[in-house]
Amino acid sequence: MLSFDLHKRKFLTVFLLLLFAWSLMGVNWQEGVMHSSGISTAGEIFAAMFTPDLSMDILLLAAESSWLTLAYATAGMSLALILALIFGILASGVLSSGKRSRTLMKGSFRGVLGFMRAIHELVWAWLFVASFGLSPYAAIFALAIPYGGILGRIFADMINDVPEEPIKALRATGASRLQCLFYGYLPSVKNSMISYTMYRYECAVRSSAIMSFVGLGGLGYQIQLSLDDLHYDEVWTFLYFLIILVVIIDGWSNMLRRRMAQ
């Protein structure tokens, strides 16, 4: 048995290495992969890392766009949470009574959630902008749909993993399905739901920063403008703002998770 396992693992390693080698063949290595001035540009960008532009108006602009990024992320995430709660509960199938209707409901709503998260948020943003113009709602919806899909799927899994016994006890006292949901399922998964949402919130801030790429403002937009002007020092200022924003949210969510685990 052990030798077989070892064999299997070796086989897997070789297979993965071959796959990687195959992917490297996709690049045309002969013609040179860098621009002729590539190395000097890389040096300039790297040097600018230590000398970010700290003039007042750039700092103000960076702070303003950080707020824009955060606001879009928060608004999108709050919408995603609502979507995820509705779809997640439906996709977990705890509300349906018969076995057949449960499989039907699980299958169909999981499919919907899968579709929502399969398409990247930036593609959603592009579709929204193309169909109804540059509006903050395009950014918010574009964030809310894929994040709703991810959260909803995880919520559904969490609800399905709730131990049977307390629910059976509730059922035995005559609770309806809705009462089971509110007094049995939701209280037992509440904490893990909150910590997963916090974890995703950090990702949402990052996504919201690149949302600007389609022209919706925010940190990513400023980064792009500065890059186009070859102002690498300004680029790094905005990047540092983004990093600080992400680190703060990461630290906050870590603290929150640790407190809730107690």
Binding site: V33, G38, I39, T41, G220, L227, V235
Partner: peptide
């Protein structure tokens, strides 16, 4: 984010 990395990297590589 990867998109920002890509914007920077595209300056260096073809």
């Amino acid at each position: 984010p990867e998109l920002v990395w890509a914007m920077i990297v595209i300056f260096i590589f073809k």
